[in-house]
């Protein structure tokens, strides 16, 4: 193994470490802002993994879409309904949830690892090692044209739907809050929209 290969392996391990530490921070912390920060770190590590898997384009897309867009949307969601002390104080006292989480996660991990290690993976015969963006674009516009158009429709519907959902009930927002304050602990059963 040459000097440069050693450096490449070291960088690969650094990226794997980023993914693992980021996801552990994501699932273990009780402060929601730290959750999203851990998610961003894990996504950056995954972008490096995509680079090692030979796709520069997906590396850039991962950073643009996940770190740049989805994490910002999540921070917006946190801004809506979140007070730091309330969530931090609310420790995980429900031991049943934690037991279920550990049990299902360990079971799934062991089963899937056994599957991965026991299977004999056979590469396909016709090898075509063209990772270029030109080839990817041609595939998008010829072979997967219908799926490409459908995903744009799905995105359009999602955007319009989220705008409608987020706007609904804005007029009587103050009325609802006053109603909640006057009748504490009693959620309004009538249609708030």
């Amino acid at each position: 193994m040459t000097f440069y290969q050693t450096i490449a392996e070291g960088l690969f391990f650094a990226f794997i470490l980023l993914v693992i530490l980021g996801s552990i921070l994501t699932i273990r912390t009780k402060i929601l802002m730290h959750t999203v920060l851990g998610l961003a770190v894990a996504f950056l590590g995954t972008a490096g993994i995509y680079f090692y898997l030979g796709s520069m384009f997906l590396t850039l897309m991962q950073i643009l879409i996940y770190v740049g867009a989805i994490c910002i949307v999540l921070v917006f969601g946190i801004m809506v309904g979140y007070t730091p002390t309330e969530v931090a104080d609310k420790t995980i006292k429900d031991w049943r949830n934690k037991f279920l989480a550990i049990f299902s996660a360990t079971t799934a991990f062991l089963l899937l690892i056994a599957c991965v290690l026991k299977t004999d993976w056979v590469p396909a015969l016709a090898e075509n090692r063209d990772f270029s963006i030109t080839h990817l674009g041609e595939e998008f516009l010829y072979t997967y044209c219908l799926a490409f158009e459908l995903i744009s429709i799905v995105l359009l519907v999602a955007i319009i739907g989220s705008i409608i959902l987020a706007r609904g009930g804005r007029e009587d927002e103050y009325k609802t809050i006053e109603h909640l304050r006057s009748a504490k602990g009693n959620y309004p059963n009538d249609d708030a929209q």
Binding site: V19, S23, L100, A101, A105
Partner: peptide
Amino acid sequence: VFLLVAGIYGLIQ
């Protein structure tokens, strides 16, 4: 697999 399992754990707890 690790990412999937971490996601399941977080989703439950």
